[in-house]
Amino acid sequence: AEDTGVRVELAEEDDGTKSPIALRLWVEDAKKLKGKYKDSGAIEFTFDLETEVSETVAQEMVDSGFFLDSDVKVISKSIRDRVALIKWRRQRIVSG
């Protein structure tokens, strides 16, 4: 996937069954963000793979002051890519 400068990883072991899963997001390359990033560190949150969309949580991060509005797309994309990977991996385990 395209390097957004933002990393999103699992913050817990994926047992392949739970729909809400803990993720951790942090900025690896602040130069890729449009807005000024104040060093907040790693942000851990729970995301529901079945019912939630990445745009919602990205907007909540902006609302909470972690990022500026101009970066909501990059945050959202970073989360979406990771979520797609988790879902793909689960699908593979189920079908294989």
Binding site: R7, W26, E28, D29, S40, G41, A42, I43, E44, F45, T46, V57, E60, M61, D63, S64, G65, F66
Partner: peptide, 27 residues
């Protein structure tokens, strides 16, 4: 700094903690 908890009005909890050195971009 230590971990901080930020709760969004929609109810989601964000736990903020320092990024471990080893996870910063070095690859």
């Amino acid at each position: 700094y230590s971990a901080a908890l930020v709760v969004h009005s929609a109810g989601r909890r964000f736990i903020v903690s320092p990024v471990p050195e080893s996870r910063l971009k070095d690859q």
